[in-house]
C-alpha cells in the first residue's frame, strides 16, 4: 500500500507554510522545541508521536490557537505574500481561520454547533464571509453534504442525531466549504470504530487529492500517516527526531525511535 499520489511539483514554488525554530514552553515544562519544516501547496504532512510527544502543542501553535514561546510561522496568503502568522491581528487571524484554513478536531462536538442543523453548520462560514442568499447557501450545503456522503434528507437534522462517523464527516464539510488551502487535523479518526475509520480515511484521501488541499495531520497512528501523508515528522519528548518522505521513512527508518514505532505497527 502506497501513500498518496506523487508529491506536487515543488520546483521554484514557495512554501504555503514555513515553520522555523518553533518552541513552546508551558512554564518550565517543554511543549515542543526547535521545530522547522515547510509545507508546500497540496502537500500532506503527518506529525506522528505518542501522547505527550508535543505534537498537539505544535499543531495548536501552527494554527494560531496557542502562542509559541519562540520561532516563526509564515503563511503564504492568497495575495502571494508571506505573512508571519504570529504577528497577524486577531481579526486577521480569525478571518484566515474561517476562510483559507480549516481545523478538524478529534471530537466533532468541538468543531460543530451541535444545536443547529447540518445545513447551517456547513453554511455558517459562507454567512460569515457575507453570503446573504438563502437558496445559494442551501444549495452549497447540499453539495458538500453529498461530497462527504451524508444523505441530502439529513440537511435539517442536528448533528446530535448523527453517528460519530457522520459527525466527523460533517465537521470536514463545514471546514471545506470555503475552499481552504490548508487544513489542520487533530487525530481526525481517533475515537471511531475501525470500520468507520477506514471509510473516513478513504474519504479524506480522495478529498485531499481532488481539492489539492495541503494538510497537517496529527496522529498517533502510523497507518493514518501512511495512507494520507506525503511527508512525516516523528516527534518524541517535544522534538522532531526524524522527518522525511513517508514512504522512505516507513521503509527505512533511521532513528531508533522511528524504527521502534515502525516495527510495532508493521507487525499488526
Amino acid at each position: 500500500m502506497s501513500a498518496l499520489a506523487a508529491l506536487p511539483e515543488s520546483g521554484e514554488e514557495k512554501p504555503l507554510l514555513h515553520v522555523s525554530k518553533l518552541s513552546h514552553w508551558y512554564g518550565e515544562r517543554l511543549g515542543c522545541r526547535d521545530v522547522s519544516f515547510d509545507v508546500y501547496p497540496g502537500e500532506v504532512v503527518a506529525i506522528v508521536g505518542e501522547s505527550g510527544s508535543g505534537k498537539t502543542t505544535l499543531l495548536n501553535c501552527l494554527a494560531g490557537r496557542l502562542r509559541p514561546t519562540a520561532g516563526v510561522v509564515e503563511y503564504l496568503m492568497r495575495d502571494g505574500r508571506a505573512r508571519n502568522v504570529l504577528s497577524l491581528t486577531e481579526a486577521e487571524r480569525r478571518f484566515l481561520a474561517r476562510t483559507d484554513w480549516g481545523f478538524v478536531h478529534q471530537n466533532p462536538s468541538d468543531g460543530l454547533r451541535m444545536t443547529v442543523s447540518a445545513g447551517a453548520n456547513v453554511g455558517e462560514r459562507l454567512m460569515a464571509i457575507g453570503d446573504r442568499h438563502y437558496g445559494t447557501i442551501r444549495e452549497t450545503a447540499l453539495d458538500w453534504l453529498g461530497r462527504v456522503e451524508i444523505a441530502s434528507d439529513r440537511i435539517d437534522d442536528e448533528p446530535r442525531a448523527f453517528s460519530g462517523g457522520m459527525r466527523q464527516r460533517l465537521q470536514i464539510a463545514r471546514n471545506l466549504v470555503t475552499r481552504p488551502r490548508l487544513v489542520f487535523m487533530d487525530e481526525p479518526t481517533g475515537g471511531l470504530d475501525v470500520s468507520v475509520q477506514a471509510r473516513l480515511l478513504d474519504l479524506l484521501r480522495s478529498l485531499v487529492t481532488d481539492l489539492g488541499l495541503a494538510a497537517i495531520i496529527v496522529t498517533h497512528d502510523l497507518a493514518v500517516a501512511r495512507l494520507l501523508s506525503h511527508r512525516m515528522l516523528v516527534m518524541k519528548n517535544g522534538v522532531v527526531v526524524e522527518q522525511g518522505l513517508t514512504d522512505r521513512l516507513l521503509d527505512d527508518p533511521r532513528h531508533a525511535y522511528t524504527q521502534l514505532l515502525v516495527s510495532s505497527i508493521l507487525q499488526v
Partner: peptide, 14 residues
C-alpha cells in the same frame, strides 16, 4: 463577526 446571526435566520427558514 456576525455570521452567526444569519445562522439563526437560516435555521428559521429551514
Amino acid at each position: 463577526e456576525y455570521g452567526l446571526m444569519h445562522v439563526k435566520l437560516y435555521e428559521d427558514i429551514a
